[in-house]
Design a protein around this nucleic acid. Structure first.
Lengths: 188, 188
DNA sequence: GCAGAGAATGTTAGTTACTAACATTCGAGA
DNA sequence: TCTCGAATGTTAGTAACTAACATTCTCTGC
């Protein structure tokens, strides 16, 4: 592992610990850098903004393919939901508890929650592009935004709770709210 | 009109002009204040952040009542959409062109677009609360978020375009994407 | 018209996020 | 060991905000 990777990991770990303890706004970049034994400048070389250290999009653009693969005769919303369901199903989360810890931080600061939404812009675009093959562009954008918003809210909600619910199940339920057709036929 | 109202209006007008011309990031609070003949401190007394001068939520919390009035046997998504449709129908926009000018500014900066979403938090909550009477809370939140996201994207999309489309028609179409049942029966 | 009260604004001096330009050290391979 | 490039530091600056306090307006009652 290169030195830079270690520094980045150390910065992020220290940042998450401090923020979890004192809150996002109350934690300064200076504190983080000092605690990581590094100068503030170095922090910004690894994370372009303070938000970036805690924000990282769990949605993978590869789901666009899954969306595009859905049959074109469905409504844009259904296509998006079914595609996302397929994408979510393949989600591999090695350390769910650590993910939850981070999401918890996000859920607590409205400022960060807005950042999460902004961070999904790329995902929204690819989903919208996939939908636009069979629907007007505006409709595609609207459907994509609705689905991603639903997943985002479900994610934050999951982070705020403290039960045994699994993230994947939670996301699936969110999709069911928008597209209530999880019919699993044994055979057509 | 009190002096404070005039100052606020002047600051906002000057800010919108400058931002429309040079962009949001490129316009400093200092420039705005000077152009308005006032000190930067005064700017912040009227607008808590630079964003606030351009951000103001067009969604009125009174729509919560319309949502709550929808029949409980429908799915949360349908209830939300039908409620919002009723709310949007009663939308009165005196100066649609000025609204569009402002929305155009919002649509151009990703940072501001995220702010718009954050600004809808209050509306989301009241819609979710109205839905929660007949659905699990998480489902209610998810449906509310999806619907508001759809309207937000439709709003920004409308601002980015330059056609003769009216905002209300645009919002209605967005709702149709999520709840394709605008059936207008003559008589039951 | 005028005095006083309270609102509106200014000044000063900070803190924090972030950037640019340039100097320095560190680490791995020749 | 030398050397080159990566990693980091330093310095100096800009811009968004904030707090505390001083000043100037503006309206109201006399």
């Amino acid at each position: 592992m290169a030195k830079s990777d270690r520094t980045r990991a150390r910065l992020q770990q220290v940042a998450l610990d401090l923020i979890a303890e004192h809150g996002f706004e109350a934690t300064t970049v200076q504190q983080i850098s000092v605690a990581a034994g590094v100068s503030p400048m170095t922090f910004f070389r690894y994370f372009s903004t303070k938000e970036a250290v805690v924000l990282n999009d769990p949605f993978d653009p590869h789901i666009a393919a899954a969306v595009a693969a859905q049959p074109g005769h469905l409504t844009p919303l259904s296509r998006a939901c079914r595609g996302l369901r397929a994408g979510v199903a393949g989600l591999y989360l090695p350390e769910e508890q650590q993910v939850r810890q981070r999401v918890r931080i996000l859920a607590q600061s409205p400022h960060l929650a807005a950042g999460v939404w902004a961070n999904t812009a790329a995902t929204q675009e690819v989903v919208a592009a996939a939908l636009a093959q069979h629907a007007p562009e505006t409709d595609a954008r609207v459907a994509a935004a609705a689905v991603i918003a639903a997943l985002t809210v479900a994610l934050l909600d999951w982070g705020a709770r403290d039960d045994e619910d699994t993230l994947v199940a939670c996301l699936r339920r969110a999709l069911d709210v928008l597209d209530p057709a999880p019919v699993k036929r044994k055979r057509a």
